[in-house]
Deep mutational scan, measured.
Amino acid sequence: MGTYKLILNGKTLKGETTTEAVDAATAEKVFKQYANDNGVDGEWTYDDATKTFTVTE
């Protein structure tokens, strides 16, 4: 398990959240659902060194 971070750079929603997941693929699924639930759809990037996903609208 590891802690993964999501940085939201949406047009109307900005912020950060974290999740505990077994791997990056699992964290990505959780974060994409979170972003979708909050109406954020954009370009995704992932930094393996910091376990950080970023979505920018």
Score class of each variant (00 low, 15 high):
M1S: 10
M1Q: 09
M1P: 11
M1T: 12
M1K: 12
G2I: 15
G2V: 15
G2M: 15
G2F: 15
T3K: 12
T3V: 14
T3H: 09
T3E: 11
T3W: 12
T3N: 07
T3F: 09
Y4E: 01
Y4N: 01
Y4V: 01
Y4L: 01
Y4G: 01
K5I: 12
K5Y: 15
K5G: 03
K5H: 13
K5A: 05
K5D: 02
L6F: 05
L6P: 01
L6H: 00
I7M: 06
I7C: 06
I7R: 05
I7A: 03
I7L: 08
I7P: 00
L8D: 01
L8K: 01
L8H: 04
L8T: 05
N9L: 14
N9I: 15
N9Y: 15
G10K: 04
K11E: 06
K11G: 07
K11S: 12
K11R: 13
K11A: 11
K11I: 14
K11M: 13
T12H: 14
T12Y: 14
T12E: 09
L13K: 14
L13H: 13
L13P: 04
L13F: 15
L13E: 07
L13D: 05
K14T: 11
K14A: 07
G15F: 13
G15D: 09
G15W: 13
G15A: 11
E16W: 14
E16S: 10
E16P: 04
E16M: 12
T17I: 15
T17V: 15
T17K: 10
T17F: 15
T18W: 15
T18S: 11
T18V: 10
T18Y: 15
T18N: 07
T18A: 07
T18E: 08
T19N: 04
T19K: 04
T19F: 13
E20Y: 13
E20Q: 14
E20S: 11
E20M: 13
E20H: 11
E20C: 10
E20G: 05
E20R: 08
A21E: 04
A21M: 03
A21L: 02
A21D: 03
V22N: 11
V22P: 15
V22T: 11
V22M: 14
V22Y: 14
V22L: 09
V22K: 10
V22H: 11
D23W: 03
D23A: 03
D23L: 03
D23G: 04
A24L: 08
A25E: 11
A25F: 09
A25W: 10
A25D: 09
A25K: 11
A25G: 09
A25H: 10
T26E: 14
T26N: 09
T26G: 10
T26S: 14
T26L: 05
A27R: 00
A27D: 00
A27Y: 00
A27I: 01
A27N: 00
A27E: 00
E28L: 15
E28D: 04
E28N: 05
K29H: 11
V30T: 13
V30W: 15
V30G: 04
F31R: 00
F31T: 00
F31Y: 02
F31L: 05
F31V: 02
F31K: 00
F31Q: 00
K32I: 08
K32F: 06
K32D: 02
K32V: 07
Q33R: 12
Q33T: 08
Q33D: 07
Q33M: 10
Q33L: 08
Q33P: 02
Q33V: 08
Y34A: 03
Y34Q: 03
Y34G: 01
Y34T: 03
Y34V: 05
A35R: 01
A35C: 10
A35G: 03
A35Q: 02
N36D: 11
N36Q: 15
N36A: 15
D37S: 10
D37M: 13
D37C: 09
D37R: 09
D37Y: 06
D37L: 11
D37E: 12
N38L: 15
G39A: 07
G39P: 02
G39N: 10
G39E: 06
V40T: 03
V40K: 02
V40D: 02
V40I: 14
V40E: 03
V40A: 05
D41G: 09
D41R: 15
D41P: 04
D41W: 14
D41Q: 13
G42K: 01
G42E: 01
G42Y: 04
G42N: 02
G42F: 03
G42R: 01
E43T: 14
E43K: 12
E43I: 14
E43S: 11
W44T: 01
W44H: 00
W44L: 03
T45I: 10
T45E: 07
T45F: 12
T45C: 08
T45Q: 10
T45Y: 11
T45S: 13
Y46H: 01
Y46W: 04
Y46F: 07
Y46P: 00
Y46V: 01
D47S: 06
D47L: 04
D47Y: 05
D48Q: 12
D48T: 11
D48S: 12
D48V: 12
D48M: 09
D48H: 09
D48L: 10
D48I: 10
A49H: 11
A49I: 11
A49W: 08
A49D: 10
T50E: 06
T50C: 05
T50R: 06
T50M: 08
T50G: 04
T50L: 08
K51A: 06
K51V: 03
K51W: 06
K51E: 03
K51F: 11
T52L: 04
T52E: 04
T52M: 04
T52P: 00
F53A: 00
F53Q: 00
F53M: 02
F53W: 08
F53S: 00
F53D: 00
F53N: 00
T54P: 00
T54I: 10
T54D: 03
T54W: 08
V55P: 00
V55E: 01
V55Q: 01
V55N: 02
V55R: 01
V55L: 10
T56F: 08
T56S: 09
T56K: 06
T56A: 06
T56M: 07
E57F: 08
E57A: 07
E57W: 12
E57Y: 10
